[in-house]
Design a binder for these strands. Structure first.
Lengths: 235, 235
DNA sequence: GGCTGCTCTATGTCTATACTTAATGAAACT
DNA sequence: AGTTTCATTAAGTATAGACATAGAGCAGCC
């Protein structure tokens, strides 16, 4: 009968202990906590180890650290949440469903003003416009409306996205340096409703994302999730 | 005329250089990259510094690292996005608007089944139920529907939330250990519509969050944002 | 073939030490 | 009082060295 010890590193152990002291209010919001050297002595580790632990908590938003001023418990912790934006296919298959997708449209078109703005490209530039529906067990899961810039993703003109999912092809071939991302809610328009097999006007969760590499904007995409979809974020 | 050098640490400099090599496809998806020792020699730094840099990129999702197997460029990078959930007041004031809030209801009530489930509490337990509207320059910004568990947040019974915003009071007095968070879209119901001064049925971005400390669930809240609200995430 | 156990390697983690740097608070100077 | 200067302090970063450990791949066994 072996103990199922969680096997924490020393740094992680210190993080949890400090977190516990904050949650149990031994160290109150605004308090200055002992400095790294003192904690190193208390926990019997090197200062570098304490430093690593406290930096993790600072990133988490629980601690405020400043040179010379010391480390304080954040007064109004604006905690951070991480969301992993998975590949649609993996997301669907991960839920135990069978993935399929259908390309509704793929053609070269002049971009409208809002897309030009998001991608920092001249209005009227010709980009590849794609409209795709992603299915899980033949239920519509997500509608994708995407513009791809061949200037930043050379070779894209020759790809047939009926065979390869655009998201995956791009992600595998053109890693990005920077991205803009925004979530919002929209009432399903006629096209969304038709493609998602939902009633027009239904509230849909929308993710709008634009990615850039050193050649400029690669792609911008509007993802409309099926009604009722919940996006889970982990703290 | 001093150079406005970005003042990167060595570890950060290595991160950007490695990121550049990936984006410029000198190192392709799936490739194995040189090991820490080799990179340490190449960049003229200690192995610990390379380790720190590569760990950052691994957290970002660009690299896959395994003992003995080495470091590979991720094939399907499921990149992560961070969202900072700010205090409403700070968010509104940060936009240059004047913050105010109105408590629509504050009373002890038995919790309905869905709330009991989310908070892992017995159905029918009596919690504090709060309904609040937050305004920016007297435009409704967000509607808050919150349940607070006095069992995990002792003292809450005696607080008058007309004077202090519940979110801030909780955040300042009861830091949490764990949280569940989900985003979704809902059509405004009659109450949402009235409180947000919007049309019934309008799509609203909803954030549902439950926080826990070592005594159990502290609070669960459903935040409905005003129509058109965009939540920005940073990669 | 298929399984077992060993070996060796690349990453994971920690330590002790050192130097750098922001910024505080006080002293010195208008 | 208001301002500038400056020493001091705590965090930030880097280093060389060490040991731990997962796990890929091989060898040998049935």
């Amino acid at each position: 009968m072996t103990e199922k010890t969680a096997q924490l590193s020393k740094a992680q152990a210190i993080t949890s202990e400090v977190r516990r002291r904050i949650v149990d209010r031994e160290w109150r919001q605004g308090d200055r906590i002992p400095d790294e050297a003192e904690l190193a002595v208390e926990f019997g580790v090197a200062r570098a180890t304490v430093n690593k632990a406290l930096q993790m908590l600072a990133e988490e938003g629980l601690l405020d650290r400043k040179r010379r001023a010391g480390t304080h418990v954040t007064v109004n912790p604006a905690r951070k949440a991480t969301l992993t934006i998975p590949i649609v296919r993996e997301q669907i298959e991960g839920a135990g469903l069978e993935y399929s997708h259908r390309v509704v449209a793929q053609k070269l078109s002049p971009i409208p003003a809002d897309v030009a703005l998001r991608m920092s490209l001249p209005e009227g530039a010709e980009l590849i416009h794609l409209r795709t529906v992603h299915y899980g067990d033949s239920q519509p899961f997500q509608v994708e409306d995407r513009w791809i810039n061949p200037g930043a993703a050379p070779g894209v003109e020759r790809i047939d996205f009926h065979r390869i999912n655009a998201n995956e092809w791009l992600v595998r071939n053109f890693p990005w340096l920077h991205a803009d991302m925004a979530f919002s809610a929209e009432n399903a328009n006629a096209r969304d409703a038709r493609l998602l097999e939902a009633r027009q006007g239904t509230a849909l969760l929308i993710l709008q994302r634009t990615t850039f590499n050193d050649l400029g904007a690669i792609t911008t995409v509007r993802l409309a999730f099926h009604p009722g979809y919940q996006l889970i974020a982990t703290p």
